[in-house]
Write a protein that binds this DNA or RNA. Structure first.
Lengths: 148, 148
DNA sequence: TTCGGTGCAAAGGGTTTGCATTCAC
DNA sequence: GTGAATGCAAACCCTTTGCACCGAA
């Protein structure tokens, strides 16, 4: 149980402490579920991974972990949220979503595109007078399982 | 009431008929609200524009209009959906969202980036065996109103 | 011993649905 | 006249909250 990598555990301790929170068993379990998964998970999926945590605690913990910049919430067209480790942990990346089953997977892009997106964000920031403009680039299509 | 442009009304009639639905007064009102607005609207905002429509009909109509490819639902981090006219009507574009107040506005990008995104979508399609991969590029930051 | 964390149950809030009525073709 | 659309209220479902209890520093 809670086979959390040392590096993530250290980071978690540090960043949770920074917001006055503790690294509890439940939070370790959630983090290890997310670390073990190749792709973002729904609350229900995380709960399956460890059904000892009450759903309410699940949500409360995910909110705390989000505040600690350890976890990121992904809003999806399919009405339930997905969660994954924060970009500080996972590295910058994008998402590919199946329009049928809703599964979300992580995708990395070429540096070239990233740079261009960065430039674009800057020019939008200037043009529309928005501060700290970030880009969110996702892709969606029909996955091979759903297509069969 | 329902000062819908002729071209949109024609298109609406056509595409609603294609899915066996009618162009009713309520649907005209919703479409004209969206056409009049410079930016995507929430259900509540559309309702304000015309408070004669029951909320339930609002949702039902928006779903029908979405099926008819007349309207697109935008999922937002701030927990309520935004709606706007479909890209077939509005043209391809992207969104800029305020992380504070949640407002969403439309943004057009240079052809150069669009082409690169298109290429990227294709290569992702091949790599992950997803069909009909589309891109969704949004930007988010703090708008000038919220920043003051 | 002191707070933060947890479980349970109840409440929230946006969205959907059942049903009888009304409307469009 | 017939099937689609509407209004109202109730149901849904994911998520949040209140409260008493538990647990780690």
């Amino acid at each position: 149980m809670s086979d959390l990598s040392i590096s993530l555990e250290t980071l978690a301790l540090e960043q949770l402490e920074a917001i006055g929170s503790r690294l509890t068993k439940s939070r370790k379990l959630i983090l290890s579920a997310l670390e073990a998964s190749a792709k973002p998970l729904t609350v229900t999926q995380i709960a399956k991974f460890s059904n000892k945590i009450a759903i309410s605690s699940m949500y409360r913990n995910l909110n705390v972990l989000e505040k600690a910049s350890l976890v990121t919430k992904i809003v999806n067209e399919n009405d339930f949220a997905f969660y994954e480790l924060d970009e500080h942990v996972l590295g910058h990346h994008h998402h590919l979503r199946c329009v049928r089953c809703g599964t979300v997977m992580d995708v990395e892009l070429a540096e070239e595109i990233e740079q261009q997106l960065h430039k674009t964000a800057k020019s939008i920031s200037k043009k529309y007078k928005f501060k700290n403009v970030e880009h969110f680039l996702d892709f969606a299509g029909a996955c091979s399982k759903c297509e069969s």
